[in-house]
Nucleic acid binder design. Structure first.
Lengths: 209, 209
DNA sequence: ACTTGGTTTAACCAATTGGTCAAATTTACA
DNA sequence: TGTAAATTTGACCAATTGGTTAAACCAAGT
């Protein structure tokens, strides 16, 4: 029964994603994942023999949502630096709104066990070809020489850009709690407005005026 | 035996800090904390009756390392915005280097259970008096009117400043892995250089030139 | 109808985990 | 020195947890 099987596997992955991303590897319970998927716990082990195997799959999927996007955007060589920043922030914040729990999940699990990254790299070579920094560095140097932007290296710029996008999402509970009196609606508005704000902020930071 | 007792309690808190900050509430084991402290597990429960109580204490201590600092710096009303940014980034990055695991720990645990923040607020009123945003907002508005800086609200600026400081620390495994080929030494150099870089970046972002 | 294969389940298991308890040990102090 | 209180320990426990197993179920081919 291929139909049923595929459906079950999907249900399992959806459930596992939900539970793992909210509670982490150590906090998640196989029983809870089974319940969430509406199946038996034994069936869970039938599809993914161990908790670790299931986790690995979920982590890999989560990881692959956010990382290739970075490469895609930076690789679009025909765009100016300003256009790239504009395009990246716009797309990345949209992506973050669609998957707000993934960054925190990935960051936390990598902090608990950095070795996961090595495993993901080994299994999925595509992630390794991130040596696009040299190209981006060249572009940054070029535009700096032309007097368009102030000198900055690709790693710093990308860290800043990504950080400005991700930080308000992963640190939401604390920022919302301290700065917004835990008002969820106001924080959503804040996040919405930040898209334009972040772009302006970054471009002004590196623009020569 | 007050001497011994104080010493034991210190050993427990140090051990608990170490284990909780690396493995989180759900990943930490009371036995491991006891081992790390060099004591019996029963003794651990003698001092802190439950895992939750011990965790709460550790979380509160971790929290109080980073939050009041923010207030202190923003409250120094005699400084210009540029001076405040300079001073804040410099001090905050030093603090982060001293306690690199705390931000990730706090962020992760708050993500797992945002309710913790409410409890911390209730027990420790000082954290609640963060209504310094109005004052800082006024200063920002004032300097903007004078044509010194571009208009920006306190919440966005502080989110940006704190994010630029914290993000490279909490996302260290992933950034170091992808951008620095997992070279720890190079990443340490990167972090060291960022102190100056972040200050320049922010000031240029808001400066009117 | 019957066999065969993958799928699903209930019941079960061994190991781990947070937590307890009574006894032993140490300390403070009269 | 004697004793009561605080501290420390080893042994133990109930509950939880990841994982197994044998049997039941079900769809498809013959």
């Amino acid at each position: 029964m291929i139909e049923q099987a595929k459906d079950t596997e999907t249900k399992i992955l959806d459930a596992a994603k939900e539970v793992f991303q909210h509670k982490g590897l150590t906090g998640a319970r196989m029983q809870e994942i089974a319940d969430q998927a509406g199946i038996n716990k034994a069936l869970l082990h039938y599809y993914y023999r161990t908790k670790d195997k299931l986790f690995e799959k979920v982590f890999e999927l989560a990881f692959s949502v956010f990382i290739p996007k970075i490469r895609d955007i930076v690789l679009s060589t025909d765009k100016s630096v300003f256009d790239k920043i504009n395009f990246f922030v716009d797309n990345y914040i949209d992506l973050l709104n669609k998957h707000p729990y993934i960054p925190g999940f990935v960051i936390n699990e990598l902090n608990r066990n950095p070795q996961i990254l090595v495993q993901v790299f080994e299994k999925n070579v595509q992630f390794k070809e991130m040596n696009l920094f040299e190209k981006f560095d060249a572009q940054l140097k070029d535009e700096a020489k032309k007097g368009i932007i102030r000198p900055i290296d690709a790693r710093n710029l990308m860290t800043n850009v990504i950080g400005l996008c991700i930080f308000p999402i992963v640190a939401r509970p604390i920022i919302q709690g301290i700065m917004f009196d835990n008002n969820k609606k106001n924080y959503d508005i804040f996040l919405e407005q930040r898209k334009k704000m972040v772009i302006d902020f970054i471009i002004n930071a590196i623009k020569v005026k």
